[in-house]
């Protein structure tokens, strides 16, 4: 994941680029077989360890998803961590420091 967290006003704008296929389950391969759905289902974020964001995503989110949100009261030096989980049970967490 690429995470950029920048202090702005009274909070921090967090922008995240995740690496994921986000396969819809609607497409067929060359042999005509349906390619099974494989996509992120849940996204959460923490600010200095405390959860601040929860989201649910479907396969309609674009490949290599982008997310932007603003954490209230976050300031330079604070830690923002983002976690995704997908429908195969894979999960990944990355952390960034607010600049």
């Amino acid at each position: 994941m690429r995470i950029r967290a920048q202090a702005q006003g009274s909070g921090a704008v967090v922008r995240v680029l995740m690496s994921h296929e986000m396969e819809t389950g609607q497409r067929k391969d060359a042999a005509g077989k349906v390619i099974p759905a494989w996509h992120i289902t849940d996204v959460t974020a923490t600010h200095n360890g405390k959860q601040v964001l929860a989201a649910e995503w479907g396969p309609g989110v674009a490949k290599n998803p982008f997310l932007q949100f603003t954490v209230k009261g976050a300031k330079a030096g604070d830690k923002i961590a983002v976690t995704w989980k997908d429908n195969k049970g894979d999960t990944r967490t990355d952390e960034a420091t607010v600049s």
């Binding site: 819809t24 964001l53 929860a54 649910e56 479907g58 309609g60 989110v61 949100f69 209230k72």
Partner: peptide
């Protein structure tokens, strides 16, 4: 939500005290 997608719902964000009620993503 994208009305004409096979499944219209793209993303759901929970609004909390800790984040601005303002989210950006990218959809198909």
């Amino acid at each position: 939500m994208v009305e004409k997608n096979p499944f219209p719902l793209v993303a759901k964000f929970d609004v909390s005290e800790s984040v601005d009620p303002n989210f950006l993503t990218r959809a198909k």
